[in-house]
Design a protein around this nucleic acid. Structure first.
Lengths: 337, 337
DNA sequence: ATGAAAGCGCTAACAG
DNA sequence: CTGTTAGCGCTTTCAT
């Protein structure tokens, strides 16, 4: 196989097989009416030449791409990975690709990312959360493609959304703790203002405590979201020092909850006997730690699947359902009993 | 702002501002010599129209894209996330984007993914590991772009590589265990044949044990890679049952090592007094678990940064260094002392 | 079942 | 500092 100085195009294949470029183009699509022998000859020539389809040219002409843009806060998070996995699987059934970007939990970065992604003219764009910079909002509104916000119930949805109220989900957990008999309950979360899901969870905690007539002021700010295991541990140390009569603590995620648990282990503090712990997200660690962690399963994969189905429905012109409500599920485990 | 039925193009901006399309094009590049007022007028018109740059058209014409294709086994893995993070940061300094795909630890899936990614004509392609299907190899060889294999020292590199020998890294850990005094050492890993880094680690374990004149047959296959915490726990249960005199166990990753640790905790087996544990990857959990886990830091972020620098060097035509060897670092912690 | 012509939106190359 | 011309590789549209 000689290395010609140009990368081969459909025209090259056409020349070799003695057909028109149009026939070559059709041969690569499954639906066309091309004779079996012609197609075979074309595919063989393509293989021999080391031909690679040029999707830029294809989408420029057809004004249609095969991908969906997705922004998530982090590429290293089991919850968002599950959402992307579910979405990816649904879209793959139609040959659509995901164009993934991560915002690092930063709305400015999200704005930059959205602008970049829209330049590729995706069929739809999926973002995490329902809060964005004003310019990001405008970009999304002007994009003239379906916009799906996830992992939240936006105050003012841009278009569609697939999610749940983080505040209400935490309320469920507070209700559980109160029902079991805990009263002096604390919350470990991130510094306010950056991770909006975490902020919503903290607000949900405060509201729920007030609804029970309980003191909602036991709040520990553990650092810039997302809160790491280490930050969870440090926050627990602070909590045990500052508010030693605390009976239970709800953490913004299972990762920080596990960190808090390890701090108790290092100090010989029994969980849940001396202090109960709750997390959020149903990460693998909460199901296997000793003790196991009470948590909330946010149905991350279901969010992705529903989002994918929604996108396909919109593309197909099926009746527009607008949004999908997700029901997070409280999972009671050893750390709160 | 009226919604014209066509999305605006540079030609529209040119018409409105009374310049040629070429001037508009130049105004969007920073390096060009366009008068400040002209540029300002153009940018304002673009903003008003809600113009979005069309990168498909741009890259078709210039035969140049601004992205680098990257395949990683999983989007939910702190090690690979760190590599992508480091790479992304270096590339961003030159306005290059990452086109990310995940293979789910499957070489067939990797092949499909590579084909998809190459259609977008990336400037370079970065893959994880040094083993691929024959067709994937051929696709990479024929792509005529820089190919960088990472996280491995390939037997036959396709082009460049940035990585380390997983086998040698595990040998370091075996040496440590032997030095501390352990002799009956087991290995918990995945079923053979899928995750090549895991296989290499198992081989490294066997070689190292033999080199010390020790029995290298205490091998537990914990399931299809990647091995979860749960599978690590199950494997530890099996190990304790089948080979109860085992003194230490090296796990293919920190996650499985942590799972193994929890199994010991549930059974009241003291770590490291009754059995020592080692992991791999220096995940956050190993630094905070009780006890903390001995592990190997594979310098994931450094792999990404070196890969990025290598790509920029190649693009700039700087002298070609071919490959970068990474030195993983043994981190001795409580679980092996 | 196949072909010819045209053009998607942008920018390289060359002019001035 | 700005404009003109042409064309990247593919697919739409209309023919046959």
């Amino acid at each position: 196989m000689k290395d010609r100085n140009k990368t081969p195009t459909m025209a090259d294949i056409a020349r070799i097989t003695g057909v028109s470029p149009m026939t070559v183009s059709r041969a690569f699509k499954s639906d066309s009416r091309i004779s079996a022998e012609t197609r075979e000859a074309i595919l063989k020539a393509a293989e021999d030449l080391g031909y690679v389809f040029d999707s830029a040219a294809s989408s420029l002409r057809s004004q249609k791409t095969d991908f969906v843009a997705v922004t998530i806060p982090s590429i290293n998070n089991a919850n968002f990975a599950d959402t992307v996995g579910g979405l990816s699987e649904v879209l793959a059934s139609r040959g659509m690709q995901i164009l993934l970007g991560y915002t690092n939990y930063d709305m400015q970065e999200e704005e930059r990312l959205i602008e970049q992604l829209l330049r590729r003219k995706p069929q739809a764009i999926v973002v995490t959360g329902g809060k964005h910079t004003p310019r990001a909002r405008k970009l999304l509104e002007n994009a003239h493609i379906p916009v799906i916000e996830t992992w939240d119930v936006p105050a003012e949805p841009i278009g569609h959304y697939v999610g749940f109220s983080n505040a209400l989900a935490v309320r469920e957990m507070v209700d559980h703790f109160v029902e079991v008999g805990y009263r002096k309950i604390a919350f470990i979360g991130g510094d306010a203002g950056r991770d909006t899901r975490g902020s919503d969870r903290r607000h949900g905690f405060i509201e729920a405590m007030k609804a029970h007539g309980l003191d909602a002021s036991r709040l520990i700010a553990a650092g810039t979201p997302p809160i790491s295991m280490r930050e969870g541990a440090n926050a627990m140390a602070r909590l045990l020092h500052d508010l030693p009569d605390t009976e239970a603590v709800i953490c913004v995620s299972d990762l920080s909850a596990f960190g808090a648990l390890t701090e108790c282990q290092r100090r010989g503090i029994a969980v849940p006997q001396r202090i109960a712990i709750g997390g959020f997200g149903d990460y693998e660690i909460g199901g296997i730690s000793v003790p196991t962690l009470t948590t909330i399963n946010a149905r991350a994969r279901e969010i992705g699947i529903s989002t994918g189905v929604m996108i396909l429905d919109i593309v197909d012109g099926v009746e527009d359902i607008g949004h999908v409500g997700i029901e997070p599920q409280l999972i009671v485990r050893q750390s709160s009993l």
